[in-house]
Design a protein around this nucleic acid. Structure first.
Length: 310
DNA sequence: AAGGGTGCCAACCGCGTTTAG
DNA sequence: GCTAAACGCGGTTGGCACCCT
């Protein structure tokens, strides 16, 4: 075959299903060192039995350094509602207005929470596209009414939404509470990971660089300064999305405080490039590291890992 | 305590677009 | 300019955890 690109990955040899911690670490380590210029060849080069598509998805949605985990704030929910009204199911477009949030995450929040509040009677199967098209002017008036109502509800339940376990959005529930059944296996996996030099590099490099990192700017303030002008005006539900500015990762107000390289925040590169001497970690720094690793990867049990380290 | 129902999320599927050759 | 693979995106669903009875 002279024309076209090389053949696609061998589907029969790729692993599917949930990613293991070791696979995550392999992917992170590889991208840290080599970037991700070619997703198709990446799994082979990295030694992963995964399709490049799967690697890309895993990286973009969970392993990227600038992915924000945790509950959606009322501002974010309001932004999603507003943007969905104007953009429809253009999840990637909507995500571009919400720094640190992925299209998949936003889509899930919409389908599991926001849509239900907007259209309580809508069924799962019928709701995807039927309400999403902003060009459907026949129902626009009713939709606007519902959007406004939901934004009001979002504001009124504000205080409870952040902390209450009964919050409508328990984002990351599964990420931070693993089945006890798996704890033993996970511990074994973590112990295996400790044998990897790269992991040690990342850990020590983090300790080396914590003092030099820029302060983290709270997302809410970013949202206010970047994207949310007019969001608090529920009457402005019909505002055009063009009034909002997509989050530009090249702008200086970077939520995670890391330098940008090759169009993305290469956290890991920056970590290992630090040349400063490694200080002995204090307990405070250690806690910070645990929190850091917890936030930056899906390794929700880094506390457990910390115990292993100690 | 057990079993069924429901909610939620991670990941896969498939299609349209982009791009390499 | 054409072809085919890679990429990117939106839709969908499998499976786990929690809740209710």
């Amino acid at each position: 075959m002279g024309k076209g690109r090389a053949p696609c990955c061998d589907q029969s040899k790729v692993k599917r299903g949930p990613w293991s911690p070791k696979e995550d670490l392999t992917l992170i380590t590889f991208i840290q060192k080599h970037g991700h210029h070619n997703w198709r060849s990446l799994p082979k080069l990295a030694g992963l039995m995964r399709c490049g598509k799967s690697c890309r998805l895993r990286w973009i949605n969970y392993l990227r350094p600038d992915v924000k985990r945790g509950n959606f704030s009322k501002e974010e929910e309001g932004a999603i509602i507003h943007l969905h009204q104007t953009l429809g199911n253009k999840w990637s477009k909507i995500a571009s207005y919400l720094p640190g949030r992925t299209d998949n995450e936003i889509k899930n929040v919409w389908n599991t929470h926001l849509k239900k509040r907007l259209f309580p009677n809508s069924s799962r199967s019928s709701s995807y596209s039927s309400i999403s098209c902003p060009q459907d002017r026949t129902t626009e008036a009713n939709q606007n009414k519902n959007y406004a109502v939901v934004q009001e509800e979002g504001n009124s339940r504000d205080n409870e939404s952040q902390d209450s376990p009964s919050s409508s959005h328990l984002h990351g529930k599964n990420m931070h509470k693993k089945p006890e059944l798996h704890e033993a296996n996970e511990l074994q996996e973590i112990q295996l990971l400790l044998d990897l030099d790269d992991f040690d590099d990342i850990t020590s490099a983090f300790l080396q660089t914590t003092e030099t990192l820029l302060p983290v700017q709270p997302l809410d303030s970013l949202l206010q300064t970047h994207t949310l002008t007019g969001f608090h005006n529920t009457g402005g539900a019909t505002q055009e999305a063009t009034e909002l500015q997509p989050f530009d990762h090249s702008q200086p107000e970077i939520p995670c405080g890391f330098e940008e390289t090759n169009g993305e925040f290469d956290l890991w590169s920056q970590l290992v490039e630090s040349n400063s001497p490694t200080p002995s970690p204090t307990s405070e720094e250690f806690d910070e590291w645990l929190s850091f690793m917890d936030n930056q990867t899906y390794f929700d049990d880094f506390t457990l890992l910390g115990e292993v380290c100690l």
